[in-house]
Structures are given as C-alpha cells and as structure tokens.
Write a protein that binds this DNA or RNA. Structure first.
Lengths: 342, 342
DNA sequence: CCAAAAATGATTGACGTACATCATTTTTGG
DNA sequence: CCAAAAATGATGTACGTCAATCATTTTTGG
C-alpha cells in the first residue's frame, strides 16, 4: 500500500499524469520537445499531489556548486570588516551547502577599481555577484553586461536601481534617515539649536538617501531645529573630527548625525566639548559600541551585517535555481541600539 | 587525476586512513565495534582532508524527516497570531527540506492545558517541541520526561531555565525592559511624574524580567520618575484599559510601559486623556502599528516572530542531527520601532 | 497513405551517504 | 596454541533526481 504521508516523487507524478518518467523529467526541467497537453497533465498532477522537488536529491544528482563573489571596499571602516567577519562565520554552513564564496577587495571610493573588479568576472568565473555599488555609469554598464551573460547581481547596502540588478539587499536608507531624525528630535527636546550631518560622501547613494530622510523629518516635525549644510568626511576619522569640532566652535550645536563611518574621529571631537550634543551614528562597530557605553553616542542605527550576508547568499541561490524571489527578501530591518541593548 | 578542488568523500577518507569504507562509516556514525587506533586514524584523516559530511546526501539516504511541534497559546493576541503566520510562511521552505510542523493550540494562561499537550507527545510522535513555557513545576517535569526520551525541547519567548531545555529562543527580556526604560526616561524628559507598568501576568517570566530591567534603569538613571506598582491585565483589553484610565485619573501619569498584550485597550484608554503620557509597548501588531501611526504609542519593542520561528526550527534541526549548537543562535535581537520605521 | 518529424517510453548510471549482511582477519585470554 | 571474541573488509541496495541514450509510438503534412 502506498504511504499517503510520504512526499510524492516524480514516479508518483508520472503515474498520476499517465506519462512516463522521462516526460515528467522533460517537463520539470524544461527540456522541451513535449506536447502541450502532456505538459498540462504533468503540471496538473504536480498540483494535485502537491509534489515538490527534493532539493537535496536534485543537488546531489547534478552535483551543483554555487560560486558567488562579494566585491567589497578594502576600507578598514568597522562596518565592512563586520561584513567580512559575517562572511567568514557563514563559511561552514555554506560549505556544507556547496556554496563557494570569493571576496574581492577594491579600494574604497575608487570607482575604477570597482569597474575593474567587475570586468574581471564573467559567467565562466562566477554565478552571482554581490557588491556595494558605486554610483557610476560604468558600473551600471558592467552590471548589465554580466547580467546579460547570466550572472546574477545583487546590490548590497547601497542600491543602484537603474542598473537592472536582480535585487537589492540592505536597509531602506530613507527610512533610516527618518528614524534617526525622529530620535534626534525627541532627544534634543524643545529649545532649538543647530544640527550637523556628516556623510562619508555625498555621491554615495545610501548616504544621500539618509540625509534626505533625516532632513524631511526634521523639517516636518521639529521646526525648531536648524540643519547645517551636509558635510563629507570620506569616512576619514581626522576629517570627521575636524568637521565636528568646527561645528561645535562656530554654532549652537545640539546634535550630530554621523551618516557614514569614521567613528573614531567622532569620539575624538566630542571629548573636549563643553555641552555634549546628541549624537546618532550608523553601524554598530567596536568603536561605536564604546561610544554608546561611554555616553558619547546616544543611539546607533545598525544594519545587521550577518543578516545582509545571509540574505544576499540566499537571494543569489534562489536566482541561480530559477526560483521566484520576493522583493521583501532583501529588505534588512534597522536595528536600533542604545546603551542598554548592545 | 583526483580533482583536489572537489569536496572529499568518505571514500577519500577511507583511502587516506587506510581503512575500509565500512570502518569509516562505523566511526562517523558511532556504530561501535571499532578499535581505538582505527577511530583515531579516521578522525585524523577527516581533519587532514577537511571532510564534511554531505548533509543532502545523508538525508536523502536515510530518508529522514523532521517532525517538530509548536505548542502555542490560542490567544488571539496579535503576537501569537504573528507567530502562527510566520510558521505558515515558512511552510514552503520547510517542506522542501523535509521538515513537518504541527501546531498545537492550548488555552492561554492555562497551565494544565499546556501540561496536557506535552503529555500527549513522546519520541514516537515528534522529534522536537518548541513552546512558550508556563512557569510551573509540572511543565518542567514533562519537559524532562520528553528530553529523557530524546525529544528536543526549545523554549520560545519565555524561558524556563531550570527545566533543562536544550535552548531558549527569544529576546533577552531583561535587556528589553532596560531598553524600554532608557527610551522612557529620555522621552519623558526632566520634570518627573508617575510611570505605570502593565504586565499580562506577573507569573509570566518574560513579563517579570522586563519589569525588572525597566525598574532597574529607571531607578539608576531617571530618579525623578516615580514607578507605580506593576499591574496585571491578563492580556485582556478591557482590563488594560481600566488600569490605564485609573492611573490617568489618580496620578500624575507621564508614562505607560505596556509589557504584555491587549493593545486595543491601551488605545481606548488613551483617547480621552488630556495630557498624553509617553507610551512604550511590546510587539509590533496591527494595533500597535496603528497606535504608532496615530501617535498614541511612541515606541514599540518587537521580537521578530519570523526570526524566532526560523531560529527555533534551525535549532531543533541542529539538535536532531547531533550538531553542536551555539547558545547565541537562539538570541533574538530586539527590534525597535517608531512611527518612521514601521 | 507514407515518410519525416515530433513526442513519448524505457532504461541506465551517476551523485554521496546510510545501513545491513556476510566473510575474513586480527586480537584476546585461558 | 587454540577457540572465542573483536575488529575489519567487501559488497550490495536504497534514497530521489538528473541527464543521456536508444527504441518505439504518434502526429503531421504533402
């Protein structure tokens, strides 16, 4: 007697559809050369029995291996380092699932380097690429080329919507900025004052989006606060420190929104000031944690690097297997940290 | 020529250890009847080659199926509903990985019902159980019995540390309480006033822990605030509403910490009050979202139900496969929501 | 109606592991 | 040293799918 509890196999589908195993295989793997009515019968049988392919068996059989590439800036900026660590931590699990990952480092803020890294890849060398895309037409062009070859592309942290990339994995940066502003407004309280925004680069889409969101909410809800023009630190600690010190000297500084990296410079600048401004930063690194503990930083908005790595890999695998992906998969929730919940 | 890139198989291990396939199998699956020195040789070979068992092939071979059980309260309290939905959403993926999940509903706050549900299971009926454990000795006893039979137990949302459960999946509730207090203090600002804490039940460990954490931080850092004695709503909207209204009438109410469920009652009570207190609640449900949008609720601390379900299933599977589990796996980060980042 | 084309069937060998059986070798203890 | 026990080897089948080959049937169009 057939065990109705057991999962149906292609044999069951074949029997139910009254076709041969070979035909079922042809349909399920889209090999072609099958009459329309047969295709329908197989699909009907699949639906009726609730057949789902045994992925383990399938992968075992085709002895598939996934080759994915992460292109990351070499900046030692804590966050990228965390991404690297997360990748390392996943290796064991990934290895067991036949996923091989290459990590390529390109110089930070160097568009040419990124383009070169992309150029050196093709469908021959990789099945999917995840990258923190720079906002440049050459990058888009390379992405389009690779996708044309069948390589799947996932943008990480910063999106490049018009490149046609398969998916974006990262937080909604406008929301991140809005959230930062909401806390900034409430923490500063009534009374007004000046607020400084420091980005890594105004050319970085993620930073720009955060600034947009931040500005919008401050203007909508906290009119008493005065936003100083957004500045750039190029994720350099020295520069950031100088920018913050200057603002403390020349303005009635009540708040600092550190959109990018360089937390060390942030802490430096804050050490001497008389009245400590409210400080909200991005990414939970060693240094920003220290800042939270000491009270120098009031709140940190983090995008969980481990979750991002996992989402990126899962997405690339789904894409490689031709599975449908839901756009929500790539959306990484914002994690908000204060001293109490580090 | 052997492809050195390919993953080693048990055949390679056997060759390297100079023993037969059968012996490798005996060692790897701990079947016994193998000389110490042979065991060592196999382990050395495994280490040398970096052999890792192909889980897909293994599962395929033993045709394994995981049967897991979730025991959840039947309360329609948004959060449990979200857990259910998350379970439903995972079904597709789980099914593809041969994981079958039963969900058992027990009456909320009914210890006997939970005990009965546990009693009805054994190693015959399930491989692992995840439950929101009630704080009761009978529950502990049943958990111990099941674990004795080899059923793996994971506590969900609320821990039961002395039951010997394999793992706890959920947030650190003391931290959750501390975090709530930190925001409460900053949002209320200087000036002092009374703060109301409403739990579902003071017998629920998760709620108690939150209260502990909340109380500690308020006393440490926000001495100007006066904590009213913690109350219980039994997650009932009416009761909660009454409690809040009473506090508004009889005290200088500046803040409400809604530790448990019953958000509807919260919104009800807040509608008429003249001075709106700062409101911090747990769990992002439909209703608490509405509260955030309308401004009635200022901040929500959420434990991501989807992440919890995933973590619980992953843990139970790791346990069933005899893999080592890291205690960190079960720790669910707190998600903090304000109006801007829903 | 017939030949060519299209569709289908039948069969087989991987993939890496689990598990069982039986035969053979080595070790042990009296 | 010999019988019993312990350890090891050898071998085969199964799991569900993929992929390929070859044989056979059905359909098509002139």
């Amino acid at each position: 007697m057939k065990n109705s509890l057991a999962r149906p196999t292609i044999h069951d589908v074949a029997a139910d559809a009254k076709v041969s195993l070979a035909t079922v295989d042809r349909v399920l793997n889209a090999r072609g050369g099958v009459a329309e009515k047969s295709i329908k019968r197989v699909h009907d049988a699949v639906a009726r029995l609730g057949y789902v392919r045994d992925v383990s068996a399938a992968n075992l059989s085709r002895n598939r291996e996934y080759r994915f590439t992460f292109i990351l800036p070499d900046s030692a900026s804590g966050f990228v380092e965390l991404l690297r660590q997360a990748l390392g931590a996943e290796q064991t699990r990934l290895r067991a699932e036949k996923v091989r990952i290459d990590v390529v480092a390109t110089r930070a803020f160097d568009v040419e380097a990124q383009v070169a890294a992309l150029k050196s890849h093709s469908a021959q060398t990789t099945d999917g690429i995840a990258l923190i895309a720079a906002e440049a037409p050459e990058v888009q062009r390379e992405i389009k080329r690779l996708m044309g070859e069948g390589v799947h592309i996932v943008t990480l942290v910063a999106d490049l919507p018009h490149s046609g990339r398969d998916a974006y994995v990262g937080p909604d940066n406008v929301v991140a900025g809005r959230t930062a502003a909401s806390f900034m407004g409430r923490f500063v309280g009534t009374g007004g004052g000046d607020i400084l925004m420091v980005t890594g680069s105004l050319a970085a889409r993620d930073h720009m989006e955060r600034v947009m969101g931040f500005r919008a909410v401050i203007q909508e809800q906290f009119g008493a606060l005065n936003l100083l023009p957004a500045t750039q630190s190029y994720d350099d600690a020295e520069t950031l420190s100088t920018l913050v010190k200057d603002a403390m000297d020349h303005h009635n500084l009540r708040g600092v929104y550190a959109v990018g990296a360089g937390h060390r410079g942030l802490l430096d600048a804050l050490q001497n000031g008389s009245v400590k401004p409210i400080v909200i930063a991005h990414e939970l690194t060693d240094i920003s944690q220290r800042g939270l503990r000491s009270g120098a930083i009031d709140l940190v908005i983090d995008q969980n690097p481990a979750a991002e790595v996992r989402a990126a890999v899962d997405l690339m695998r789904d894409l490689s297997d031709g599975r449908m992906i839901s756009p929500a998969t790539g959306s990484i929730p914002l994690n908000i940290f204060v001293r109490e919940n580090i």
